[in-house]
Write a protein that binds this DNA or RNA. Sequence first.
DNA 1: ATTCAAAAGTGCAATCACTACACTTTCGCA
DNA 2: TGCGAAAGTGTAGTGATTGCACTTTTGAAT
Lengths: 189, 189
Amino acid sequence: MGRRERKKAATRQALADAALKLFLERGYEQVGVKEIADAADVSVTTLFKHFGSKEALVFDQDADKEAALVAAVRDRPAGRSVPDALRDHILVSRFAYGANPELRRFLDLVESTPALREYSDRMWIRHRDALAHAIAAEIGAPADDASSAALAFFALQARALTRDHPDPRHMINETFNLLAAGWAAVHPE
Amino acid sequence: MGRRERKKAATRQALADAALKLFLERGYEQVGVKEIADAADVSVTTLFKHFGSKEALVFDQDADKEAALVAAVRDRPAGRSVPDALRDHILVSRFAYGANPELRRFLDLVESTPALREYSDRMWIRHRDALAHAIAAEIGAPADDASSAALAFFALQARALTRDHPDPRHMINETFNLLAAGWAAVHPE
DNA sequence: ATTCAAAAGTGCAATCACTACACTTTCGCA
DNA sequence: TGCGAAAGTGTAGTGATTGCACTTTTGAAT
């Protein structure tokens, strides 16, 4: 990778870092793009060349999530159903920030900011087709199989569904109980 | 109803009418709020006193939809399951514009405008709790029953799920097959 | 090494939805 | 009859996002 791309990546990183730092300090809405650009020592124009929107500054990794999602289905333990594998993956990705306080604060920021919540939801839904195809492949159905698409969509929406529930873990489990039972009925083995 | 409220309602209606007319003529994005206000002969400030956002100008009826939704569940034919009743309701509300070309154009406008699609989706989801409570009441579960909440949420999301599918009717049916089977398994009668 | 075009970055002005404010007009009603 | 709330106005702002014309950097081909 040449100097050019390295510098570009550095600028991008500086922007994302500055943004996250400022957001955590003072809250998403209380920070303007101008400040972020200044903190990263670039112009606002440059900021928007790197990130399509203010929200995008916070979510700087996307492709790996999709890969992980597809892998969760494809590489699931033998005997585990597709919905159950998805349940596991959602539970882990939602509650496994372990003892990492940075991640914890980041998730709190997202959850407490409506604009970021919506953006995050939309990000997940963008992986809908990829997940649907992975599921269809697993059961040997055509790529545009409707039930696979429905399961993929619902699994991805589960985050939004369980967000404001008092007991998210329980809500997720109940939700996937419904999906798993329906899936088993539609696709008996 | 006194003259005052009549005038207020008239202004509101003039705004909604002007907005819809302009949107249909030239497209949602190509029309500014200023133009709408001018067409209705009020100030922009007044426009925003009546409608919370530009999108809201298009969706001027909300309460009745929620009532219809709850009624679809509560007053369903004897022997019909809750998910099936919801399927019927969704199918009707989605395809029953009959020979009404105005409604047809309106729906096309919404479907072809990202901002309006999202707004419409969010509007439906706002009814989530009401629908969830109605479902829970039907099966004699506590109001915060998790499976009822999941079913309500998924049924409402079905519109978004089936939007960009080549055969929406088929997609809706497959989706509700999944939900109905899951629901039957979780709530055997 | 020189040159050249693309890529990265800049600065400015503009757009557009939406808000705050301070103000006037209009009714409803006591 | 008169007063206060409600409806409406106009202006000036904010804040994200875009378009434009411009300079600087740098990879690569000659």
